[in-house]
Write a protein that binds this DNA or RNA. Structure first.
Lengths: 365, 365
DNA sequence: CTGTTAGCGCCTTCAT
DNA sequence: ATGAAGGCGCTAACAG
């Protein structure tokens, strides 16, 4: 065995502190661990010895014997994405305040990565997991079930999974989308584009086909699509598959698709974008077509930002409570550690439609 | 002792797997841990038993005995900030690919938080630390020294600390700023504003005072300020303290300060912004003043984004290689684990000036 | 109130 | 090639 296995230079242990202080190991452990009773005198001596040696508790060893790691696992699609970065910040702010640290793993929407990430967290013995899962089908949630079976509390964030009966913290995607599209319709628009929908290879011709496709994909996208259809239905505007973008979700494709919708015989006069990249993609298409917003085309999109406010025109956007989303998820999870019974329900946070100037009546009105 | 201390439901240990397979614990440990020699037959039996019981290795226990946690600690100002989110993504992508997970802590530029974060990482026995430190003075780096003294390799990212003799991965802030300001000057501008500088309570009247102030604060800000001054010097344009913003760095204050500079008798005709929020703040001021970019005022800023490209006009911006910044830092750190000698040098990554249309000659030209 | 003792699950020498 | 035994640093019963 190497001389310093697990015991690198300058890493005194409780035993050494005890020796230095001339007390038993348990006494040192008690004062350093902050539990049990210890007389003031000995306490002082232990503290002095610890300070002298520069003692720092070994959280690994502590976790080994307590079975608690004071660490939360977080699984999201992409920590580099401002949306998830905000959620993660919410999670780490509130968990840190309650003594927990976080290990964050990105999956890039790949299910295999998600399974691997879950295993890493299980192996590292995190006390709980918060996950924005890409899983939808009943068959794709085995890894989440595995964690639960091992007694690890799990909370879903951003995306609910119906078949799972877990606490989920999400926003009112469907209502938010409906409200936005309603505003477009109220301004007089009847040709409203939807960018973007489910990543189907081909655009389903029917509304039913589209919804089926949506239910096989990201929960948020499906909800937003439903909100869009809700608004159309309420206004008795027929659904036109030509006006919804499906397929790979990239800014470039959004630009192409919006250009296509703009070129339709019965031209689109308003766009609803479900993500930031969809908004910038749409804006590029407008510019390329020499169209001006809101005179020629109205626009509302998801995910407000400072940029949206300084655009010309200032953009009407949906603001998601990203930080709160993470904070609430962490709270729900941490509460179970304090004995709170998991309520296994959907916690829906409200988004906010920030009205600015990107909506006006359609050209002919 | 509670019956299941550290041994919750459904968490078989190596001993149980060994029993199930009818072999010794060491044999099970060897095959499950992937080390040592084990005959194919026994190997199979162990694997089968492990699969049957749903065995997952306990990384904590492994770390206890090996002294290696396969975890990196990351300390940044704010994981919710897109810049750091990008850096963190770079770090976790490359460390994950090499078998390491990350614990990320935000300090919000608070030194006490930074010290606390460092201690958390020491306690959790991370194998190395990557830090974008807010420390500058020799007196503020004790916590980093403490980590080093405990044998934990440390790599600085985004911000160098001269007094520390560590590997640092940064971008060419000074050159980037100079190049941008040079472009402004080349277009004919002589009244170039700088938003924002060091958070001094009051604007130092002299150039020297400003630099002193800057050296007491964030390294990046100081470098960018130097680049600005470099460009001014080369063009023999006198430095005017009225044209640099100091103090709290918020979007609102940027707006106020730019408004002030715009109202100067000898009006500013170009602005250089060192951060995204400074850019949007400046843009608000322009709009409020009814000025148009680039006709009335030219602008260049740090941190390119999709938004900058769809602005009217499209903005000329400096693109930082955020992902690469993190990736390189992780590489340098991970390499030391494979025995590479830390080179303790500054690794400077190149930024890129993305030229678009926000720069034109000043009004009178 | 304090010290002794026995684990937590794994890795690793040391015999066999 | 395999098994037995000890230790990583800490917590937690238990005895004193």
């Amino acid at each position: 065995m190497p001389a310093d296995r697990g015991q690198a230079a300058g890493r005194p242990t409780i035993s050494e502190v005890a020796a230095e202080a001339g007390v038993g190991r348990a006494t040192a452990a008690r004062t350093l661990g902050g539990y049990g009773y210890v007389s003031p005198e000995l306490r002082e001596r232990v503290l002095a010895a610890a300070a002298k040696l520069g003692y720092r508790t070994n959280a690994l060893a502590r976790s080994m014997s307590t079975g608690v790691s004071h660490t939360l696992g977080v699984i999201v699609a992409d920590i580099g994405n401002p949306f998830f970065a905000g959620v993660v910040r919410g999670i780490s702010d509130t968990s840190r305040a309650r003594g927990f640290d976080t290990i964050v793993l990105s999956t890039y929407e790949d299910l295999d990565e998600e399974v691997a990430a879950t295993n890493v967290l299980i192996d590292k013995r995190v006390d709980g997991v918060i996950i924005a899962s890409a899983a939808v089908d009943r068959g794709e949630v085995a890894h989440i079930r595995a964690a639960m079976d091992r007694g690890i509390p799990v909370v879903l964030v951003d995306r609910a999974i119906a078949s799972l009966d877990l606490d989920a913290v999400v926003i009112d995607n469907r209502d938010a989308a409906r409200e936005a599209v309603e505003m477009l319709i109220a301004a007089g628009h009847r040709r409203v584009g939807f960018v973007w929908g489910p990543p189907a290879a081909e655009a389903p011709a029917t509304r039913r086909g589209l919804l089926t496709e949506a239910s096989r994909n990201l929960w948020t996208d499906g909800e937003r699509l439903r909100g869009y259809l809700d608004a159309l239905d309420d206004a008795r505007i027929p659904f036109d598959p030509e006006l919804v973008m499906v397929g790979r979700k990239t800014e470039e494709r959004a630009t192409q698709e919006v250009a296509r919708m703009l070129a339709l015989p019965d031209r689109m006069t308003a766009v609803f974008c479900t993500e930031t990249d969809a908004v910038t993609g749409a804006l590029r298409a407008l510019r390329a077509a020499g169209l001006s917003c809101p005179r020629d085309i109205a626009l509302i999109g998801f995910d407000d930002s400072s940029w949206a406010a300084v655009m010309e025109p200032p953009l009407t956007m949906i603001e998601q409570p990203v930080h709160q989303l993470g904070a609430k998820a962490a709270e729900v999870l941490l509460d179970t550690f304090e004995g709170a019974e998991p309520r296994r329900e959907m916690h829906t946070l409200r988004s906010r439609l920030v009205v600015r100037s990107s909506v006006a009546p359609p050209p002919g009105a």
